[in-house]
Amino acid sequence: MLLKTIDWKIENDIGHLVLCQPPANTMSRHFFEEMSILTRDILPRADFKALIIYGKGRHFSSGADHYDLRNRIMENMPADFPHELPGFLKETTRSFLFIENLPVPTFAAIRGTCFGSALELALHCRFRICAEGTVLGFPESSFGLMPGCGGSVKLPAITGLAKAIELIVSGRNFSAAEAYEWGIVHKIVHRRSLLEETVDLAKTMIHKHVPEWNP
């Protein structure tokens, strides 16, 4: 199956999941469909020891297109909502949870912008490595919405309740340095060396799992 919005490759035992709709790598409906295919059909059969998620070009991702998202919700709203949820949203949650539950170290390598659903995807990774100058945020409240793919569940566990309220209700942007201070990202690196340093970290972790006495 050929994917158009995601580039998937394995290099030296490390899986690279690259969001591939430059310039902003906006998470379109095709992206979410392909995330579903990737996590159902491709990743379970692939052999990798660590996973890195990043965006092609200058940005991680600006998140979902909220106009398109709202239209899809209206189109797919089950008659017995809220007992039943729109299928495509359940599928997105499932694919994000698949990343969360992978039995290998997972990294989000973040630079440029990382908003909304993109930040939610990053929060489902075990480690977040962030380039200087990155801007992050949950802007949903300014569109009359809220995070819908785990943001309001994952964030308070990381930052505590007060900061989570502050960031999600106000919807304000925050910097890489702030994200580091609040524990949202684990390391800040130079923009140009982001991928290289993340790969190095992944390699270190992979090799720690190899017993030294085993030839």
């Binding site: 709202r70 709203m77 949820l85 729109p86 569109f143 809220m146 569940v153």
Partner: peptide, 22 residues
């Protein structure tokens, strides 16, 4: 955890519908 995720999606959908109506 997974129940909280499901409830979040419900709240999100309800807001999405309301914002469309508005």
């Amino acid at each position: 955890f997974e129940k909280a995720l499901e409830e979040e999606t419900k709240l999100f959908c309800t807001l999405a519908v309301k914002s469309m109506q508005n």
